[in-house]
Structures are given as C-alpha cells and as structure tokens.
C-alpha cells in the first residue's frame, strides 16, 4: 500500500450564482483593490492508503460523488499526489 493525498476541488458550476464570492469581491473593491471578477472554491485534502494511483482516484471519486459535491450545483477536480 502507498500513501496518497487526494486533493479535491469543488466549485460551483459556471453560471450558478455565488453570493459569497460576490460579497468577497465587493469587500476587496471597498478596500481599494481593482479586480475583474472573483470565484471561490472549496478544497479538501484527504490522506488515504491505496494499492495504486488509480485506486486512490476511484476511492476519492466515490467520496466526492457521495458527499463532498452536489452534482446539481457543483463541478469538481481531483488531483492525487503520492505522499
């Protein structure tokens, strides 16, 4: 078995309103920063033991589909790194 860290990034699908990001953008603008747009995402780092890279990815996908992301509003990306 090998130790991996699975990095899961969950973000709102394109076109879905993100009030937290808008509020954050407005706060930055009030502080005098200039920016065109701002998007936010959630990042999960999951340490797992798996036989190989592919197994680690499959297990992470299962966790993400089951709980971490809601397919109605989210897209996600998974990166697997060997620890």
């Amino acid at each position: 078995m090998t130790g991996y860290t699975a990095i899961v990034t969950v973000r709102l699908k394109s076109g879905v309103l993100d009030p937290e990001a808008e509020t954050t953008q407005h706060a930055l603008e009030r502080l005098g920063f200039e920016l065109e747009s701002l998007r936010s995402a959630e990042r999960f780092e999951i340490d797992i033991e798996a036989a190989d890279h592919e197994t680690a990815r499959e297990r992470t996908e299962a966790m993400t589909e089951r709980l971490l992301a809601n397919p109605t509003i989210h897209d996600y990306e998974i990166d697997i790194e060997q620890r």
Binding site: V16, L17, D18, P19, E20, E22, T23, N70, T72, I73
Partner: peptide
C-alpha cells in the same frame, strides 16, 4: 429535484 443553496443576499 434541485438544490437549496446560499441566499442571494449571502
């Protein structure tokens, strides 16, 4: 169906 998510007002 659908999802209930963060209010537009945040």
């Amino acid at each position: 169906p659908g999802a209930f998510t963060t209010n537009e007002s945040d």
